[in-house]
Design a protein around this nucleic acid. Structure first.
Lengths: 120, 120
DNA sequence: CCGAATCCACTAAGATACTG
DNA sequence: CAGTATCTTAGTGGATTCGG
């Protein structure tokens, strides 16, 4: 069972995953290193400010690294740290839940068997 | 790999888990049926308005049920649905991550081996 | 091309008082 | 007891512009 005292608290991760775009942003980064503009296009219509804010926060939390390749034009890459990679099971769990319980237009979830959907 | 098209999207769950208090609220409900006042105390200092807002939204999404026991004094209970119970693996994954990577005051995470911390 | 800076808008959340 | 009503506040996110 889950305890709210220090060793079992989940608060630390709430700070990391908070924010409208954070989950989708991490989802993109699980697919590999990405450049700023790439992320911006994939997360359209996110604003550059918001994208920067989120990336900085994740950087502070040790979830992503920012690598600057000097030169013109500028080139910046964002990549998940080890710590960040380890977040993947959480997303896998969310993804699995949506498979079983999420609603897609015109298709109620209860039709697919948990066995079938559980193969991740 | 995770796909952003309909069958693989995680957006539906983002709507459910969104909000400052939602995760903590669900955490309480995993421990069993709870009354309004109970939740209010455990989630202190949440305001009654916010608590109501969140509970109503979760009710709409089919995550919790609201049961009214008429009489004076009034008595209302909130309980997770089956669908809500199935969210538990997500929390377990978050909890596991915090065990391995979360920071508790005065204790950096990298000291404990993944093997040791991974026993859930 | 990347992203910092500024300003504005929206909405979640808080405070407080009151009702079935 | 379990909310509702109303108002206010504050935190994000959006739009735009500018600099390295």
């Amino acid at each position: 069972m889950i305890d709210r005292s220090c060793p079992g608290a989940i608060e630390p991760i709430l700070e990391i995953l908070d924010g409208k775009w954070t989950l989708l942003l991490l989802l993109e980064l699980f697919n590999g290193t990405k450049r700023f503009g790439e992320l911006r296009r994939k997360l359209h219509p996110i604003s550059p400010k918001t994208l920067t804010d989120r990336l900085r926060l994740l950087e502070d939390k040790g979830i992503v690294t920012r690598t600057l390749y000097p030169g013109v034009p500028l080139h910046v890459e964002y990549e998940l740290t080890e710590r960040g990679q380890r977040l993947q099971p959480i997303f896998a769990a969310m993804w699995a839940w949506v498979q079983e319980n999420g609603v897609c237009p015109g298709k109620e979830a209860e039709n697919i068997s948990p066995e079938e959907a559980g193969s991740l």
